[in-house]
């Protein structure tokens, strides 16, 4: 199982701050595509991804037990 964290407008669009996906292994790109299709979450084209609190690339591998967070453009400060 992979835990997915959602923030800001992603969270508001889905109406949840996290999802749990029954996936054993996937690339970040595949995971994004899956969610784009399932939730019409086209905003995923312009967000970064973190795996277990570290920024990751589209080619990186997500495995069961990992926490994936989608990071929209940040606006702290």
């Amino acid at each position: 199982m992979i835990k997915v964290l959602l923030f800001a407008h992603l969270q508001e669009k889905i109406g949840k701050d996290q999802l749990e996906l029954e996936i054993i292994q996937s690339t970040v790109a595949e995971l994004k595509n899956k969610l784009k299709n399932q939730f019409q979450l086209y905003e995923l084209n312009s967000v970064m991804t973190a795996i277990n609190e570290e920024y990751a690339m589209d080619e990186d591998i997500v495995k069961s037990g990992d926490t994936v967070a989608f990071i929209p453009p940040v606006s702290g400060g």
Binding site: A8, E43, A50, S75, G76, G77
Partner: peptide, 27 residues
């Protein structure tokens, strides 16, 4: 402003916006 995962939602006089996903800001 580049790497820390923090997001700001502006509540304007008319409406509200998550900054970063709108023209309000182009990070």
């Amino acid at each position: 402003k580049q790497i820390v995962p923090i997001w700001k939602k502006e509540h304007w006089e008319h409406g509200e916006t998550w900054i970063g996903d709108q023209l309000e800001n182009t990070p």
